[in-house]
Nucleic acid binder design. Structure first.
Length: 864
RNA sequence: GGGCUCGUGGUCUAGUCGGUUAUGACGUCGCCCUUACACGGCGGAGGUCGCCGGUUCGAAUCCGGCCGGGCCCA
């Protein structure tokens, strides 16, 4: 044990956190591949390396670290890996920005190199924040998706799914961002409200309303509702498209809303998802009017080369000139946009690669996973149920995992590499063998690359040791922690891939965290100016305070508003605990106790009962990932039970030197030790610091989780009474304008049981206290009656009020000594036990005394 | 329009398989520098638990409707 004068007066989080950070060793958090302990593998989210670890990440990682540390203390072999999901557009855009180039100004390889360098720099910056936050990361299991080691696994998974028929290529309409010049998946489409114009124009004699006149060239049909009598005569005919002159059929479809616009609608390839639907259903022609750059194609005739906005204006102008534009109306609509750049997406038909979605097997696996909170499973279910198209996994970009296939230049045959040659970039290397079909040695490498989610959706396979040969050794993982915003992407794709590649669910449990909102209750955004970065909190209040906010800010799973109040109260709790530490150290260094000291005094036994309850509550909450409940119970025990009640009660005993002192010392030590351990997952720096003063050279993070139990029902009941009595007398002092330590004179406590308080009550109240078990010899008058309404209601139901009136009508003698039965409403009924408590006013031996009642305990205070 | 979710003192929040006086934090007001702590202690004020209706002896809690916020999706 260290000496108490080594403790600084104030807790200096900056100094302490820095010191432990440089003391702790990474190896202590490594997953042990030779361990016999049960495994607990975490499928940590690999963040996108933007260079800034934002507060949403921080919350997510707090949860992970809480249970990672808890599980280690519980004896699990924990793997808390750290990945980095590198590929993708934002980095490409950033590189273009920083270097003032576009991706086409340099070679693909040069561009990739620039992306890699930026990513490495960003990862380095984010690692520093992770370390400051004291996350117990397993750095031996770090993975970076842009490295050959990782993306060879991505490519292997691609080849396996290609071989098993999950992956195919096909020409199919896809969502396409013409600014990013790439296909995107539905999960990457963000819908935004926009105001647009609905244009009514003459379409070969029929009025048609459209929001997208620029797609006139891509018109392939006119659709009407089959029951719409206005258009019965059009059935089976064809119509001439204005301005362009090609003929299109008239089709009938129930999905046409006769009340919208004119009730006749033109089908274009493709204005929206509905067009795709109709196009498939009615087997219509395909007319591509917009190309990958968003420019009008040759079929747009004189409009060729215009972008869609200019084309729209030009076509409307031409319609006006031809006097076929009838009118225009404003219309609010939701348009699909690219979630990264907010450009409205186009639906283009392109040759792309797809992953087959099999809803049933995904649902089955999703249901085998335990979801925290449970309702998040519904979100997954809803998403799976309404999937219409397969997952488009090809992208026309550069910084991504290459699709490892070639095509024979002569016969078009697809050629794949040997698995042992992975990773490969088919644009840089050639196949090792000639084409099996035609013998040609001329090939074109696939230039499309993979969707980033193809990398990250095998994170769990990567960490559990998947290499394509049999079941991965640590699969499935125990838990996936992630936010609810990426259920439809990361969680969904991971389940899909795990099932496709291994046939089973990827994890046992999934813990879904909420979003972090700004202090104003809105999503954090630059425009609102409500962004809080973790670094700012680390600077002002330290990692432990930030972590406490993460635990207590809201129930696990619900959205959490950032709140400086919570950070401040977290810091105050640390101050309080720091002083408890100091007090305990000062008392315990005086010595005089050992583990075999008998614990006899009521206050001591009571605290052990409270501690036992707390340990149980906290442990249960940790198992259920209810970090708010756990930390709240810890704080309540430390602040309320230990500091405000117990220490105040036994202070006097600790200041003196006798046998009863040892009992208090043992209890104090037991409680303090348990507190350090329970705090360890939440406030690792702080818990380590406190623990180290009592156990120099030892780390609290290597101790087992608390398993303390103490069963003493009498101590619970009587101790609660004791605490309430003391509080009541303090309040009495307060009400009488006395200082809390002012001497009080004779206090007599009439309790139903003997109380061995070792003089604690008298010392803490600074009074001449006498505990007695006999009945108080008081003249008492009943002033009121308290009913136990839960008993009254259960027993008498509707007659409850009548019963209470009957009791009130009893004489004072009867109330003081209640009969077994009572009459009311014409019948005689048994008087239930504990159904009422009379309120008394007391006189002791004719002398003036103040009387307090606490439950069934009577306290008389004889004034001096 | 659909699904999910939330609505509790000035602010944030716990409680929600019904039951005596609705939890805590921050703020606020009063008293107290008691040999761990004034970054503290003790106490007070402050709530028609979104609104309306129902079930019940009894509803923040269960049911129905409405209003409002958030997220996801049409």
């Amino acid at each position: 044990m260290a000496s108490s004068d080594q403790l600084p007066k104030n807790y200096d989080f900056a100094e302490v956190e820095e010191r432990w950070r440089s003391t702790w060793r990474d190896e202590d958090h490594y997953f042990d591949r030779n361990s016999k302990k049960p495994q607990f593998v975490i499928d940590t989210p690999p963040p996108y390396p933007t260079g800034n670890f934002h507060i949403g990440n921080a919350l997510n990682w707090c949860y992970i670290d809480f249970f990672a540390r808890y599980k280690r203390m519980k004896g699990f072999n924990v793997m808390f890996p750290q990945g980095w999901d590198c590929h993708g557009l934002p980095t490409e855009v950033k590189v273009e920005e920083l270097n003032h180039i576009t991706k086409n100004d340099v070679s693909r390889e040069e561009f990739r190199k620039m992306c890699r360098e930026l990513t490495e720099k960003n990862i380095a910056a984010m690692r520093i924040t992770l370390r400051k936050m004291a996350f117990s990361t397993d750095w031996s299991n770090e993975y970076i998706t842009m490295t050959p080691k990782y993306y060879s696994k991505t490519q292997l998974s691609f080849l396996r799914m290609l071989a098993s028929g999950y992956i195919y290529q096909s020409e199919h309409p896809v969502n396409y961002c013409t600014r990013c010049e790439t296909a995107i998946a539905f999960a990457e489409v963000a819908y935004e409200d926009r105001e647009t114009q609905l244009n009514y124009f003459d379409f070969d004699g029929v009025e048609i309303a459209t929001t997208r006149p620029e797609l006139l060239a891509a018109c392939v049909a006119v659709a009407v509702h089959p029951n719409d009598e206005r258009y019965h005569k059009l059935k089976g005919t064809s119509m001439k498209v204005p301005l362009f002159g090609h003929d299109v059929p008239v089709v009938q479809d129930e999905a046409v809303d006769p009340a919208f616009g004119s009730g006749a609608v033109m089908i274009c390839t493709f204005g929206d998802k509905q067009d795709v639907h109709w196009w498939k259903q009615h087997n219509l022609a395909l007319r591509k009017a917009i190309d990958r750059q968003g420019k009008m194609t040759a079929i747009a005739g004189k409009y060729q080369g215009l972008n869609s906005t200019d084309c729209r204006a030009a076509i409307l102008a031409d319609m006006k000139e031809k006097k076929i534009l009838h009118r225009q109306e404003k219309l609010a609509q939701r348009v699909g946009t690219c979630w990264r750049c907010k450009t409205p997406i186009e639906i283009l038909s392109e040759r792309q690669w797809f992953v087959k979605i099999k809803p049933d097997e995904i649902q089955k696996a999703a249901h085998e996973i335990t979801w925290y909170p449970g309702h998040m499973l519904l979100r997954m279910g809803n998403w799976v149920e309404q999937m219409e198209w397969d997952w488009c996994i090809s992208r026309q970009r550069i910084f991504a995992t290459p699709i490892p296939v070639w095509f024979c230049r002569k016969c078009g045959e697809m050629v794949v590499p040997d698995e042992k040659d992975l990773p490969i970039d088919p644009t840089l290397v050639k196949p090792k063998h000639a084409c099996k079909k035609c013998g040609s040695t001329e090939f074109d490498g696939e230039v499309d690359v993979l969707d980033t989610w193809m990398d990250s959706s095998i994170s769990v396979l990567n960490v559990t040791g998947w290499d394509g040969s049999g079941k991965p050794p640590y699969f499935p993982a125990q838990i996936r922690p992630q936010g609810h915003d990426i259920i439809r992407t990361w969680a969904f794709y991971t389940i899909l891939r795990a099932v496709a590649l291994t046939g089973s669910r990827p994890w046992d449990q999934i813990l879904v965290n909420g979003m972090v909102l700004g202090e104003d209750g809105f999503k954090m955004s630059k425009s609102r100016g409500n962004i809080i970065v973790p670094e700012e909190i680390l600077e002002k209040n330290g990692a432990d305070a930030l972590r406490q906010w993460g635990a207590m800010g809201a129930a696990t799973g619900s959205d959490i508003m950032f709140n400086w109040n919570d950070v401040v109260s977290a810091s105050r709790f640390q101050t309080k605990m720091w002083n408890i530490t100091k007090f305990a150290l000062i008392q315990l260094e005086k010595g005089g106790f050992d583990k075999n000291t008998p614990v006899t005094a009521l206050a001591d036994r009571w605290l052990l009962v409270r501690l036992s309850d707390t340990v149980e509550q906290v442990s249960d909450a940790m198992e259920a990932y209810q970090f708010d409940v756990a930390l709240k119970a810890i704080r309540e025990f430390a602040w309320d039970a230990l500091a405000d009640n117990y220490i105040e009660l036994v202070k006097g005993r600790l200041y003196q030197q006798d046998a009863s002192r040892a009992s208090a010392c043992l209890v104090l030590h037991t409680a303090f030790d348990a507190l350090c351990r329970m705090l360890a997952p939440f406030t690792p720096y702080f818990a380590e610091e406190c623990y180290s003063y009592f156990n120099p050279g030892q780390s609290v993070h290597k101790q087992p989780w608390v398993s303390f139990t103490y069963d003493d029902e009498a101590a619970r009941v009587e101790g609660n009474t004791l605490v309430l009595v003391v509080a009541e007398v303090r309040k009495y002092k307060h009400d009488n304008g006395m200082a809390l330590n002012a001497p009080l004179g004779k206090v007599t406590i009439y309790a139903p049981h003997t109380v061995n308080d070792e003089g604690d009550t008298g010392r803490t109240l600074n009074a001449d206290v006498h505990w007695r078990t006999d009945a108080a010899k008081l003249d008492r008058a009943i002033t009121d009656i308290d009913f136990n309404r839960s008993v009254v209601g259960k027993t008498f139901r509707k007659e409850g009020q009548a019963f209470m009136d009957a009791v009130k009508a009893l004489s004072p003698e009867q109330l003081a000594n209640p009969p077994k039965t009572i009459q009311f409403g014409g019948t005689e009924v048994a008087l239930p036990e504990n159904v009422f408590t009379p309120k008394y006013s007391y006189m002791e031996e004719g002398a003036k005394v103040d009387v307090l009642t606490v439950g069934d305990v009577i306290v008389t205070i004889a004034k001096k």
